[in-house]
């Protein structure tokens, strides 16, 4: 546990002192600020502000563009950089369990991505400051859904980062998986039979748009993201420990 805490501290520190990460954060805030201002000027939202969380967290570009693309950019260095610079082998041979390494790196990325969301929360506080009558259950639901989805996308990014020492492969692979997770269910949701049913049960935008962002908390959606996140963390762990399986 002590080793985990030390590694987590190290990873968080390395993220917080990286200018690249702040550049990423600034771009995230800028794009979210643009979406925020655009959606706020949309006539339907002016008529009914309860639609705002759905437009931002449910069906907007935040979900379709930013959410799948940014987490892999944050996680790309976590394993790929270590492999590239040759520091992964010493880390794996250090007296720390592999699962703790994966957990520490994931938690560090998750904690830093939380800062990404705090910036978006500031936009809602800005609205509140201007006496906007917000439905906080919907806003809270939207945030919970978006944070859950970003947790999953961080896990896929971490997995992609564990593939090798190529940073482009790590970022591109992670983003690719995330876009597939978003788009594949959409493509097949109207298919007949089991394919359609499976697509609907894996439909992330629907979970965000028709549950979280309307203030509806569904036990399946609440469990879907942690289970999928654990699956990708498991795959990351398998990828790491598999180095030891074969002499």
């Amino acid at each position: 546990m002590r080793a985990f805490a030390a590694l987590l501290r190290k990873e968080v520190f390395s993220l917080f002192v990286s200018p690249y990460i702040y550049l990423l954060l600034g771009t995230w805030f800028l794009l979210n600020g643009l979406f925020f201002s655009f959606i706020l000027g949309y006539p339907a939202v002016e008529q009914d502000l309860t639609l705002f969380p759905q437009f931002l967290f449910g069906s907007g570009l935040l979900v379709w563009l930013l959410l799948p693309a940014f987490p892999p950019l944050l996680t790309l260095k976590l394993f790929a950089e270590e492999q590239r610079t040759g520091t992964l082998e010493p880390l794996l041979s250090a007296p720390i369990r592999d699962i703790a390494i994966v957990a520490a790196k994931y938690c560090a990325a998750w904690l830093f991505f939380f800062v990404f969301w705090i910036g978006v929360l500031l936009l809602f506080l800005l609205l509140e400051f201007h006496q906007a009558p917000l439905d906080w259950a919907r806003v809270g639901g939207g945030f919970l859904g978006a944070i859950s989805a970003s947790s999953l996308f961080l896990a896929t990014g971490l997995w992609a980062s564990s593939w090798g020492g190529n940073l482009i492969l790590a970022a591109g692979g992670g983003a690719c998986i995330n876009f597939l997770l978003l788009f594949l269910p959409v493509l097949f949701e109207n298919s007949p039979g089991r394919v359609g049913a499976l697509a609907k049960s894996l439909h992330i935008p629907n979970m965000l748009d028709r549950a979280f962002a309307v203030g509806l908390f569904d036990s399946y959606a609440l469990l879907f993201f942690p289970i999928m996140t654990l699956l990708f963390l498991w795959l990351t762990w398998v990828r790491l420990v598999s180095r030891r399986w074969v002499p």
Binding site: G33, S37, E46
Partner: peptide, 25 residues
Amino acid sequence: IPFRPSRKEKVRMANIAILGIPGFT
């Protein structure tokens, strides 16, 4: 829940959202 901020308020919010927070970062 209608919400129609004045033009001045809109500009202020847009400035903070697009210039303020990202600029500071």
